[in-house]
């Protein structure tokens, strides 16, 4: 028993990592549900949610608008050069709008917000953890998850779809800029193509995605910060930096993975 055969050790390693992975997944799920349910527990915390909407949403307007504009402009250029080969450059509006609404809007908005708000969410909560502020809440009989996490989840759920719509609209305008002003497509055709080809389902599928991303980003980033102290191999400032890094990496990967799953479900 003492010296295990190599394959056995391999299986044991595999088993152990799988168990800890499932455990972590469960912990994150419980963390999210507890935080989500407590958005609605009395007394409500509208002020805190508003602060977070300010932080996650309002302060991201500029960056989302900027990225949306350039994304739309690039789509306009690329789409034009592809479509012109088939002689159907009139379809440009549809191409730009559909790719923005269904795919790029929700995903790129989520990635931008991860970079801007998600990382600082993880860092802020992580610092609160290591400077014992979370313990202090506990000793004051204030539920730290309700106090810290619920407003962030709630604010993300509010902010993400709004930011995504902003991204979409500005992206369509960006496509108009390159397509119509630069490449001389008739602007009436551009917009009418959009109105003709976009159906409600395209819009709603974008919203479902952005809601899912809101949950993923807020949960992962707060979770990483909240459990900074349990992270092996990093304490104090180092722990916070590790937590921030993994919050960004994990939520980016999960957003893209979830995007694939949702696309295949919603198509």
């Amino acid at each position: 028993m003492k010296k295990q055969a190599l394959p056995l050790a391999l299986f044991r390693y595999l088993g152990r990592s799988f168990i800890s992975f499932v455990g972590e997944l469960g912990a994150i799920a419980i963390f999210f549900f507890y935080g989500f349910v407590n958005i609605f527990s009395y007394p409500f915390q509208p002020r805190k949610i508003m602060q977070q909407v300010y932080f996650i949403g309002a302060k991201s307007i500029m960056i989302v608008a900027l990225v949306g504009l350039f994304t739309g402009m690039v789509l306009g250029l690329q789409g034009y050069y592809t479509l012109v080969k088939f002689g159907s450059e009139g379809m440009l509006g549809a191409a730009v709008a559909l790719s923005l609404l269904r795919e790029l809007g929700p995903v790129l908005t989520a990635l931008m917000v991860i970079g801007r708000a998600g990382s600082s969410m993880a860092a802020e909560i992580g610092i609160m953890r290591i400077s014992e502020q979370i313990d202090a809440l506990d000793t004051m009989d204030i539920d730290p998850i309700r106090f810290l996490i619920s407003p962030r989840i709630g604010a993300s759920i509010i902010s993400f779809p709004l930011l995504t719509s902003l991204f979409d609209v500005i992206g369509i305008l960006g496509g108009y800029l390159t397509g119509c002003l630069l490449l001389r497509i008739n602007s009436g055709i551009y917009f009418n193509r959009i109105y003709d080809s976009v159906v409600m389902k395209d819009v709603t599928s974008g919203y479902w995605k952005s809601l899912a991303f809101a949950i993923i980003v807020s949960t992962i980033c707060s979770y990483q910060g909240y459990f900074t102290h349990l992270r092996p191999g990093g304490f104090g400032a180092r722990g916070v930096s590790l937590a921030t890094t993994s919050a960004v990496v994990i939520s980016c990967v999960l957003v893209l993975a979830a995007d694939y799953v949702l696309t295949s479900l919603l198509l």
Partner: peptide
């Protein structure tokens, strides 16, 4: 226990003031 916890205050070594 909740009732009792309200009677207790804890002062942390690094104060643990909320910096925001």
């Amino acid at each position: 226990w909740k009732q009792l916890k309200r009677k207790v205050s804890y002062m942390f070594q690094q104060n643990a003031l909320f910096d925001s």
